[in-house]
Amino acid sequence: MSAAASLPDETGAAAAEAPLLSVRDLTLHIPVPPHVLRAVDGVSFDLRRGETLGLVGESGSGKTLTALMLMRLLEPPLAALPKGEVLLDGTDLMALDEKRMSALRGRTVSMVFQEPMTSLNPVMTVGRQIAEPLVRHLGLSSREAAARAEEMLRLVHIPDPARVARAYPHLLSGGMRQRAMIAIALACRPAVLVADEPTTALDVTVQAQILELLAELQREMGSAILLITHDLAVIAETAHRVAVMYAGRIVEEAPVAALFAAPRHPYTRGLLASIPKIERVPAPTLPEIPGMVPGAGDRPRGCAFMPRCARAVSGCAAEPPPLAETDPGHRVACWNPANG
Protein backbone atom coordinates (compact mmCIF):
# COMPACT_ATOMS: atom_id res chain seq x y z
CA MET A 1 0.00 0.00 0.00
CA SER A 2 3.10 2.23 -0.23
CA ALA A 3 3.10 5.81 0.97
CA ALA A 4 -0.56 6.36 0.19
CA ALA A 5 -1.58 4.75 3.44
CA SER A 6 -0.31 7.50 5.67
CA LEU A 7 -0.36 11.23 5.53
CA PRO A 8 2.60 13.44 6.31
CA ASP A 9 2.00 15.70 9.27
CA GLU A 10 3.36 18.83 7.60
CA THR A 11 1.05 20.31 5.00
CA GLY A 12 2.69 23.49 3.73
CA ALA A 13 4.67 23.84 0.49
CA ALA A 14 2.79 20.92 -0.97
CA ALA A 15 1.23 22.47 -4.05
CA ALA A 16 4.29 22.08 -6.26
CA GLU A 17 4.77 18.38 -5.70
CA ALA A 18 3.26 15.58 -7.78
CA PRO A 19 -0.50 15.16 -7.44
CA LEU A 20 -1.72 12.89 -4.68
CA LEU A 21 -4.67 11.73 -6.73
CA SER A 22 -4.63 11.61 -10.48
CA VAL A 23 -7.81 10.69 -12.36
CA ARG A 24 -7.23 9.77 -16.00
CA ASP A 25 -9.90 9.35 -18.65
CA LEU A 26 -12.53 8.04 -16.26
CA THR A 27 -15.46 6.74 -18.28
CA LEU A 28 -18.80 5.12 -17.58
CA HIS A 29 -20.78 4.03 -20.63
CA ILE A 30 -23.93 2.14 -19.73
CA PRO A 31 -25.39 -0.06 -22.47
CA VAL A 32 -29.17 0.24 -22.52
CA PRO A 33 -29.98 -1.38 -25.88
CA PRO A 34 -30.36 0.09 -28.42
CA HIS A 35 -28.56 3.06 -26.80
CA VAL A 36 -25.40 3.62 -24.84
CA LEU A 37 -25.75 6.13 -22.00
CA ARG A 38 -22.50 8.05 -21.85
CA ALA A 39 -22.92 8.98 -18.20
CA VAL A 40 -19.27 9.90 -17.63
CA ASP A 41 -17.16 10.50 -20.70
CA GLY A 42 -13.40 10.75 -20.21
CA VAL A 43 -12.96 12.77 -17.01
CA SER A 44 -9.40 13.68 -15.97
CA PHE A 45 -8.19 15.83 -13.10
CA ASP A 46 -5.48 16.03 -10.43
CA LEU A 47 -5.79 16.66 -6.72
CA ARG A 48 -2.84 17.76 -4.57
CA ARG A 49 -2.24 17.39 -0.85
CA GLY A 50 -4.07 19.98 1.22
CA GLU A 51 -6.03 21.17 -1.80
CA THR A 52 -9.79 21.43 -2.34
CA LEU A 53 -10.99 20.81 -5.87
CA GLY A 54 -14.62 21.77 -6.48
CA LEU A 55 -16.44 19.57 -8.98
CA VAL A 56 -19.52 21.50 -10.02
CA GLY A 57 -22.37 20.61 -12.33
CA GLU A 58 -26.14 20.33 -12.64
CA SER A 59 -28.21 17.18 -12.13
CA GLY A 60 -27.19 14.47 -14.55
CA SER A 61 -23.78 15.97 -15.29
CA GLY A 62 -22.03 12.85 -13.93
CA LYS A 63 -20.37 14.41 -10.90
CA THR A 64 -21.72 11.94 -8.32
CA LEU A 65 -21.00 8.95 -10.59
CA THR A 66 -17.43 10.21 -10.91
CA ALA A 67 -17.13 10.16 -7.12
CA LEU A 68 -18.66 6.70 -6.81
CA MET A 69 -16.30 5.30 -9.45
CA LEU A 70 -13.33 6.87 -7.72
CA MET A 71 -14.40 5.28 -4.42
CA ARG A 72 -15.15 2.02 -6.24
CA LEU A 73 -18.65 2.14 -4.78
CA LEU A 74 -20.70 1.37 -7.89
CA GLU A 75 -22.74 -1.76 -7.40
CA PRO A 76 -23.13 -4.60 -9.88
CA PRO A 77 -23.96 -4.62 -12.77
CA LEU A 78 -22.50 -1.09 -13.06
CA ALA A 79 -19.37 -2.05 -11.11
CA ALA A 80 -17.82 -3.78 -14.13
CA LEU A 81 -18.31 -0.84 -16.52
CA PRO A 82 -15.93 1.96 -15.44
CA LYS A 83 -12.83 2.52 -17.54
CA GLY A 84 -9.80 4.70 -16.90
CA GLU A 85 -7.32 5.15 -14.08
CA VAL A 86 -7.51 6.56 -10.57
CA LEU A 87 -3.92 6.88 -9.40
CA LEU A 88 -3.53 7.42 -5.68
CA ASP A 89 0.15 8.09 -5.03
CA GLY A 90 0.91 5.88 -8.01
CA THR A 91 -1.46 3.00 -7.13
CA ASP A 92 -4.31 2.51 -9.63
CA LEU A 93 -7.45 2.07 -7.53
CA MET A 94 -9.35 0.82 -10.57
CA ALA A 95 -7.01 -2.17 -10.83
CA LEU A 96 -7.25 -3.26 -7.17
CA ASP A 97 -9.31 -6.25 -6.14
CA GLU A 98 -12.13 -5.56 -3.67
CA LYS A 99 -10.11 -6.85 -0.71
CA ARG A 100 -7.26 -4.42 -1.27
CA MET A 101 -9.69 -1.60 -2.13
CA SER A 102 -11.65 -2.07 1.08
CA ALA A 103 -8.38 -1.81 3.01
CA LEU A 104 -8.00 1.70 1.56
CA ARG A 105 -11.62 2.82 1.66
CA GLY A 106 -12.35 4.69 4.88
CA ARG A 107 -8.65 4.78 5.69
CA THR A 108 -6.86 6.54 2.84
CA VAL A 109 -9.83 7.66 0.78
CA SER A 110 -13.07 8.49 2.53
CA MET A 111 -16.45 9.86 1.54
CA VAL A 112 -19.14 12.11 3.03
CA PHE A 113 -22.59 11.79 1.47
CA GLN A 114 -25.38 14.30 0.97
CA GLU A 115 -28.03 12.61 3.06
CA PRO A 116 -26.64 11.83 6.51
CA MET A 117 -29.83 10.05 7.57
CA THR A 118 -29.67 7.43 4.85
CA SER A 119 -25.90 7.00 5.04
CA LEU A 120 -25.57 6.41 8.76
CA ASN A 121 -26.46 3.02 10.19
CA PRO A 122 -29.71 3.56 12.15
CA VAL A 123 -29.18 0.61 14.51
CA MET A 124 -25.61 1.35 15.57
CA THR A 125 -24.59 4.08 18.00
CA VAL A 126 -22.71 7.03 16.56
CA GLY A 127 -19.67 6.18 18.68
CA ARG A 128 -19.45 2.63 17.34
CA GLN A 129 -19.76 3.86 13.76
CA ILE A 130 -16.75 6.11 14.27
CA ALA A 131 -14.83 3.41 16.17
CA GLU A 132 -15.41 0.72 13.56
CA PRO A 133 -12.88 1.92 10.96
CA LEU A 134 -10.35 2.59 13.73
CA VAL A 135 -10.51 -1.02 14.89
CA ARG A 136 -10.65 -2.38 11.37
CA HIS A 137 -7.99 -0.29 9.66
CA LEU A 138 -5.69 0.86 12.45
CA GLY A 139 -5.99 -2.17 14.72
CA LEU A 140 -6.98 -0.13 17.78
CA SER A 141 -8.53 -1.99 20.71
CA SER A 142 -12.23 -1.31 21.16
CA ARG A 143 -11.46 0.79 24.26
CA GLU A 144 -8.88 2.90 22.46
CA ALA A 145 -11.24 3.26 19.50
CA ALA A 146 -14.12 4.39 21.74
CA ALA A 147 -11.89 7.04 23.28
CA ARG A 148 -10.75 8.17 19.81
CA ALA A 149 -14.39 8.31 18.68
CA GLU A 150 -15.24 10.74 21.46
CA GLU A 151 -12.22 12.79 20.54
CA MET A 152 -13.39 12.91 16.91
CA LEU A 153 -16.83 14.10 18.01
CA ARG A 154 -15.15 16.85 20.01
CA LEU A 155 -13.05 17.73 16.97
CA VAL A 156 -16.17 18.25 14.82
CA HIS A 157 -17.58 20.51 17.59
CA ILE A 158 -20.32 18.25 18.83
CA PRO A 159 -21.33 19.38 22.32
CA ASP A 160 -21.36 16.67 25.00
CA PRO A 161 -19.48 14.09 22.88
CA ALA A 162 -19.70 11.32 25.48
CA ARG A 163 -23.49 11.44 25.37
CA VAL A 164 -23.66 11.72 21.56
CA ALA A 165 -21.29 8.74 21.16
CA ARG A 166 -23.88 6.58 22.90
CA ALA A 167 -26.80 7.99 20.88
CA TYR A 168 -28.40 6.57 17.73
CA PRO A 169 -28.46 8.73 14.59
CA HIS A 170 -32.22 9.47 14.65
CA LEU A 171 -31.79 11.39 17.89
CA LEU A 172 -29.50 13.94 16.25
CA SER A 173 -30.44 17.02 14.20
CA GLY A 174 -29.48 17.22 10.50
CA GLY A 175 -26.42 19.35 11.22
CA MET A 176 -25.26 17.05 14.03
CA ARG A 177 -25.66 13.98 11.80
CA GLN A 178 -23.57 15.60 9.10
CA ARG A 179 -20.89 16.37 11.71
CA ALA A 180 -21.03 12.74 12.88
CA MET A 181 -20.60 11.55 9.30
CA ILE A 182 -17.60 13.85 8.86
CA ALA A 183 -16.18 12.42 12.11
CA ILE A 184 -16.53 8.88 10.69
CA ALA A 185 -14.98 9.85 7.36
CA LEU A 186 -12.03 11.58 9.00
CA ALA A 187 -11.45 9.13 11.86
CA CYS A 188 -8.45 7.50 10.14
CA ARG A 189 -7.09 10.85 8.87
CA PRO A 190 -7.59 9.97 5.19
CA ALA A 191 -5.33 11.50 2.57
CA VAL A 192 -8.33 12.14 0.30
CA LEU A 193 -11.86 13.11 1.34
CA VAL A 194 -14.65 13.01 -1.23
CA ALA A 195 -17.58 15.16 -0.09
CA ASP A 196 -20.71 14.81 -2.25
CA GLU A 197 -23.06 17.76 -1.66
CA PRO A 198 -22.15 17.72 2.05
CA THR A 199 -24.28 20.78 2.88
CA THR A 200 -27.09 20.65 0.34
CA ALA A 201 -29.64 19.17 2.74
CA LEU A 202 -28.81 21.71 5.45
CA ASP A 203 -30.01 25.20 6.30
CA VAL A 204 -27.67 28.09 5.47
CA THR A 205 -26.62 28.80 9.04
CA VAL A 206 -25.74 25.12 9.52
CA GLN A 207 -24.10 25.00 6.08
CA ALA A 208 -21.82 27.82 7.19
CA GLN A 209 -20.86 25.80 10.29
CA ILE A 210 -20.08 22.65 8.28
CA LEU A 211 -18.03 24.45 5.61
CA GLU A 212 -15.94 26.18 8.30
CA LEU A 213 -15.45 22.81 9.96
CA LEU A 214 -14.23 21.13 6.76
CA ALA A 215 -11.77 23.96 6.11
CA GLU A 216 -10.49 23.81 9.69
CA LEU A 217 -10.02 20.02 9.61
CA GLN A 218 -8.26 20.28 6.27
CA ARG A 219 -5.77 22.78 7.73
CA GLU A 220 -5.22 20.46 10.65
CA MET A 221 -4.93 17.14 8.79
CA GLY A 222 -3.75 18.30 5.37
CA SER A 223 -6.27 16.09 3.57
CA ALA A 224 -7.08 16.75 -0.06
CA ILE A 225 -10.82 17.35 -0.60
CA LEU A 226 -12.89 16.68 -3.70
CA LEU A 227 -15.98 18.81 -3.06
CA ILE A 228 -18.91 17.92 -5.28
CA THR A 229 -21.73 20.42 -5.46
CA HIS A 230 -24.21 22.18 -7.71
CA ASP A 231 -23.75 25.39 -5.70
CA LEU A 232 -21.20 27.77 -7.19
CA ALA A 233 -21.35 30.03 -4.14
CA VAL A 234 -20.17 27.14 -1.93
CA ILE A 235 -17.35 26.53 -4.42
CA ALA A 236 -16.36 30.20 -4.41
CA GLU A 237 -15.91 30.14 -0.66
CA THR A 238 -14.22 26.79 -0.16
CA ALA A 239 -12.39 25.50 -3.25
CA HIS A 240 -8.88 26.28 -4.48
CA ARG A 241 -9.59 24.99 -7.98
CA VAL A 242 -12.82 24.25 -9.84
CA ALA A 243 -13.77 21.77 -12.54
CA VAL A 244 -17.12 22.37 -14.26
CA MET A 245 -18.92 19.31 -15.61
CA TYR A 246 -21.59 19.25 -18.30
CA ALA A 247 -23.18 16.14 -19.77
CA GLY A 248 -20.50 13.74 -18.50
CA ARG A 249 -17.43 15.81 -19.34
CA ILE A 250 -15.28 18.46 -17.72
CA VAL A 251 -15.79 21.57 -19.84
CA GLU A 252 -13.59 23.98 -17.90
CA GLU A 253 -11.06 23.77 -15.09
CA ALA A 254 -9.23 26.66 -13.44
CA PRO A 255 -8.06 28.14 -10.13
CA VAL A 256 -11.16 29.46 -8.36
CA ALA A 257 -10.36 33.17 -8.78
CA ALA A 258 -9.67 32.78 -12.52
CA LEU A 259 -12.82 30.76 -13.11
CA PHE A 260 -15.09 33.33 -11.50
CA ALA A 261 -13.27 36.39 -12.84
CA ALA A 262 -12.62 35.17 -16.38
CA PRO A 263 -14.69 32.12 -17.30
CA ARG A 264 -14.09 31.05 -20.89
CA HIS A 265 -16.56 28.24 -21.60
CA PRO A 266 -19.99 29.56 -22.65
CA TYR A 267 -21.67 27.12 -20.24
CA THR A 268 -19.60 28.32 -17.27
CA ARG A 269 -20.36 31.92 -18.23
CA GLY A 270 -24.08 31.18 -18.50
CA LEU A 271 -24.11 29.35 -15.20
CA LEU A 272 -22.30 32.16 -13.37
CA ALA A 273 -24.58 34.79 -14.90
CA SER A 274 -27.76 32.94 -13.93
CA ILE A 275 -26.99 32.68 -10.19
CA PRO A 276 -29.12 35.20 -8.32
CA LYS A 277 -26.94 37.59 -6.31
CA ILE A 278 -28.01 39.87 -3.50
CA GLU A 279 -27.75 43.38 -4.95
CA ARG A 280 -29.17 46.79 -4.06
CA VAL A 281 -30.81 47.12 -7.45
CA PRO A 282 -31.32 43.70 -9.04
CA ALA A 283 -31.64 43.38 -12.80
CA PRO A 284 -35.30 43.14 -13.87
CA THR A 285 -34.69 39.68 -15.37
CA LEU A 286 -32.06 37.05 -14.58
CA PRO A 287 -29.88 35.87 -17.48
CA GLU A 288 -31.10 32.41 -18.55
CA ILE A 289 -29.45 29.51 -20.33
CA PRO A 290 -32.09 28.52 -22.90
CA GLY A 291 -33.20 24.91 -23.31
CA MET A 292 -32.18 22.10 -20.99
CA VAL A 293 -29.46 19.53 -20.36
CA PRO A 294 -29.68 16.68 -22.91
CA GLY A 295 -30.31 13.21 -21.48
CA ALA A 296 -27.39 10.76 -21.31
CA GLY A 297 -28.96 8.81 -24.17
CA ASP A 298 -29.52 11.63 -26.65
CA ARG A 299 -26.39 13.74 -26.52
CA PRO A 300 -25.26 15.44 -29.70
CA ARG A 301 -22.27 13.88 -31.46
CA GLY A 302 -20.16 17.00 -31.11
CA CYS A 303 -20.12 19.38 -28.17
CA ALA A 304 -23.01 18.48 -25.85
CA PHE A 305 -23.64 22.15 -25.03
CA MET A 306 -23.96 23.21 -28.67
CA PRO A 307 -27.80 23.22 -28.86
CA ARG A 308 -27.95 25.78 -26.00
CA CYS A 309 -24.85 27.75 -26.97
CA ALA A 310 -24.91 31.30 -28.36
CA ARG A 311 -21.27 31.05 -29.50
CA ALA A 312 -21.65 27.81 -31.48
CA VAL A 313 -19.76 27.69 -34.78
CA SER A 314 -19.94 25.20 -37.65
CA GLY A 315 -17.31 22.82 -36.24
CA CYS A 316 -19.11 22.30 -32.90
CA ALA A 317 -21.52 19.68 -34.24
CA ALA A 318 -18.82 17.44 -35.68
CA GLU A 319 -16.59 16.54 -32.77
CA PRO A 320 -16.47 17.12 -29.03
CA PRO A 321 -13.80 19.70 -28.20
CA PRO A 322 -10.79 18.45 -26.17
CA LEU A 323 -9.97 19.98 -22.79
CA ALA A 324 -7.03 22.22 -23.77
CA GLU A 325 -4.91 24.55 -21.67
CA THR A 326 -5.45 28.22 -22.56
CA ASP A 327 -3.54 29.81 -19.69
CA PRO A 328 -1.35 28.15 -17.07
CA GLY A 329 -3.69 25.97 -14.97
CA HIS A 330 -6.78 27.01 -16.98
CA ARG A 331 -8.24 24.35 -19.29
CA VAL A 332 -11.27 24.77 -21.56
CA ALA A 333 -13.12 22.32 -23.80
CA CYS A 334 -14.62 24.61 -26.42
CA TRP A 335 -14.12 25.23 -30.15
CA ASN A 336 -14.93 28.92 -29.74
CA PRO A 337 -14.15 29.96 -26.16
CA ALA A 338 -14.89 33.48 -24.99
CA ASN A 339 -12.04 35.77 -24.03
CA GLY A 340 -11.65 35.69 -20.26
Binding site: M176, V204, T205, Q207, E212, A233, E237, L272, I275, I278
Partner: peptide, 24 residues
Protein backbone atom coordinates in the same frame (compact mmCIF):
# COMPACT_ATOMS: atom_id res chain seq x y z
CA UNK B 1 -26.84 36.06 11.08
CA UNK B 2 -28.95 34.49 8.33
CA UNK B 3 -27.68 37.01 5.77
CA UNK B 4 -24.07 36.57 6.81
CA UNK B 5 -24.40 32.79 6.36
CA UNK B 6 -25.39 33.10 2.69
CA UNK B 7 -22.35 32.06 0.65
CA UNK B 8 -21.43 34.58 -2.04
CA UNK B 9 -20.51 33.47 -5.55
CA UNK B 10 -17.41 35.67 -5.46
CA UNK B 11 -14.09 34.10 -4.36
CA UNK B 12 -12.18 36.05 -1.74
CA UNK B 13 -15.12 38.29 -0.83
CA UNK B 14 -16.08 36.21 2.14
CA UNK B 15 -17.55 38.47 4.76
CA UNK B 16 -16.71 38.28 8.42
CA UNK B 17 -19.21 35.60 9.19
CA UNK B 18 -21.27 35.37 12.32
CA UNK B 19 -21.55 31.61 12.61
CA UNK B 20 -24.54 30.88 14.83
CA UNK B 21 -23.91 28.26 17.47
CA UNK B 22 -26.22 25.34 18.10
CA UNK B 23 -29.43 24.32 16.35
CA UNK B 24 -32.91 25.74 16.07
Amino acid sequence: ALLSAVPEPVPGRRRARQVLQGDV
